[in-house]
Design a protein around this nucleic acid. Structure first.
Lengths: 335, 335
DNA sequence: CCGCATCAGTTAACCGGTTCAGTGAACCGC
DNA sequence: GCGGTTCACTGAACCGGTTAACTGATGCGG
């Protein structure tokens, strides 16, 4: 432990090759030097076990090679998958992800966004709980910001991967209506009190259009709490014939509630989810859900943020379209 | 974007207070300065919106405030939970986690460990796929290493959170034996080819002791692939009456396989998992599994690594004991 | 053969903190 | 009243790279 594992510095490589440190710096990055010199430097570096010190590099160059990933709530399994995917994709591009979790709290989200900026991340990927916060504009002036899900208001983000949540809601509600349901309870995760979130607004508009009666119930993110709320709602009077959960994780809680209450899915209550987490296809019964092609989202978001960081111009806005996966939980044809 | 968001430096704060940069540095950390000076400096810093530059600080002090978290396989949902928990706990202690995923590949694990060290993390938490690799000793000489799960061979780690996997295996197999099963198939995730992993060895030893016939089948980490393998095994001739999955995630795949094959759980085949992921209690039927108290593990690991980094002496080894959660999937008394 | 650009490499400043050695003043006991 | 500490703070080196400005040599068109 106390032996100092002193590593070679760029000056030592310079000494070894008879070049200046600057030349070594250039050579190792393959610029402003002859092929031959680059080869010589590489050999010497290899010999000395030299590897550029990322901190020193970050300080001098102003780029840390790290991207902040600000998640709405990692209690949500789909968001966990998203985070894992983004971390993996960034690593493949030689960047590290700094993953932080707002835990569904919009204030915490903003505090963490500030912390990440102060940490000097090269870019920020955010799944905004509160897309209307003023902080986003300030942040976007400092560091490239890419949003996933809802677009930041005012279009300040350098990149956006937008979910067509209106379409997702329409798909789910139309499906339930087509199956003959008239009363639907919608379980939606805690959100910022932004009355203009497209998805939430759209639920009511769409319900009206389809002649559905909907009750919107806000549920906490954690599985245990979601189960509790669902048990209360489904066990109470006036039970709906169908529920639409705005996250598959919530649907998992609903499944648990139905079992506890002895209700059959979809016989007593049909359940439709949102996200299509890999688990959802494996449940009994398999969960009907709105699929968002997580790989495509990961790919778009990472590509956007990396390209902005690298100064490459790129299409700023990507809109993702959902697809309904009809499975047995709604009594539709099992997939 | 192109306006430079120049932030205040320590020299500006020094100028504003009439002190030297060194004094400001000390004052902000509350050392070697008078109370009054500290207050004055704090006020000036606030006024100027000064916040220490983490990169510069890291370069000068040699500590990055970042801890590497090297996961065995993030395909495994339990490990995802672990990673989320550790990230959260580190953040609460003002550190960032650099989460990377070996994807079940021992070679990749070592390569990533090296990358994290080169990134100058202050500490490393690792869930070793290959505890016998020579690299660990080298690494542990450079950076504090805390292992989770299996202990690193030779005891080089500065901290260890050891799972008593022998006990876990015993609990599961005894439970299945007590239920009258005589042939058990064990699904285990891909691992390093280390013949001396306690858990794997113990499966055979324990099976012999209990008079069980076991077949060990190695399955890939991903849900889809696990399902495929399970379908082949359970659909083939000589189907076992019980399976023991060395990870709940694998059990989820087995559930999917049984449904596909029209087998009843636990009627046709009993299923026992390992980990007790929160989802497992919500499945139909709820999954009997070996519980590892994830919060305790998170807490121990983070505490160990942070204390070692901070130079506080601390108990180096924590052994976690599992508990069997008997649920309906093995036909035991439902919880 | 001249003027100008390009190439390969050097020098020195710089990024923004931390820390070690040193300094003057106040304080202490006797 | 004096040597020895302690306290609060300063100056300068240092962490290990990157980069702007500059230099000398070479190449090229005309």
């Amino acid at each position: 432990m106390s032996e100092k594992p002193k590593r070679a510095t760029i000056r030592e490589v310079a000494q070894a090759t008879g070049l200046s440190p600057a030349a070594v710096s250039y050579a190792l990055r393959g610029i402003q030097t002859s092929e031959e010199t680059q080869e010589r430097v590489r050999a010497a570096a290899e010999e000395l076990g030299y590897e550029a010190h990322p901190i020193a590099r970050a300080l001098a160059s102003g780029r840390t090679g790290q991207v902040g990933l600000l998640c709405g709530s990692l209690e949500d399994y789909w968001q966990q998958s998203l985070a894992v995917g983004i971390g993996r994709a960034l690593l493949a591009r030689d960047r590290y992800a700094l993953i932080v979790d707002a835990g569904g709290d919009p204030e915490r989200e903003l505090a963490l966004a500030r912390r990440l900026r102060d940490q000097r991340v090269d870019g920020l990927i955010v799944q905004p709980l509160d897309p209307s916060a003023a902080l986003w504009a300030e942040l976007a002036g400092t560091v490239p910001v890419v949003s996933i899900g809802d677009a930041l208001h005012g279009g300040q983000a350098q990149g956006e991967v937008v979910f067509d949540n209106r379409r997702g809601v329409t798909l789910a509600l139309e499906h339930l209506r087509d199956l003959g349901h008239q009363r639907v309870t919608v379980f939606t995760p805690t959100r910022a009190s932004t009355p203009d979130r497209p998805a939430d607004v759209h639920v009511n508009a769409e319900a009206e259009r389809l002649g559905l009666r909907v009750d919107v119930v806000v549920v906490p993110q954690s599985l245990a709490e979601a189960t509790e709320v669902a048990t209360r709602v489904l066990g109470g009077p006036g039970r709906p014939s169908a529920v639409f959960c705005f996250a598959d994780s919530i649907a998992y809680g609903v499944y648990a509630a139905t079992r506890e209450l002895g209700l059959a899915v979809p016989g007593d209550v049909a359940v439709c989810g949102y996200d299509n987490h890999p688990m959802s296809a494996l449940l009994t019964p398999p969960l009907t859900t709105v699929d968002w092609d997580i790989d495509g989202i990961v790919h778009s978001a990472v590509r956007l943020v990396v390209d902005v960081i690298d100064g490459k111009p790129r299409k700023r806005r990507v809109v993702r379209e959902p697809a309904l996966r009809v499975r047995a939980s709604t009594g539709g044809a099992p997939e």
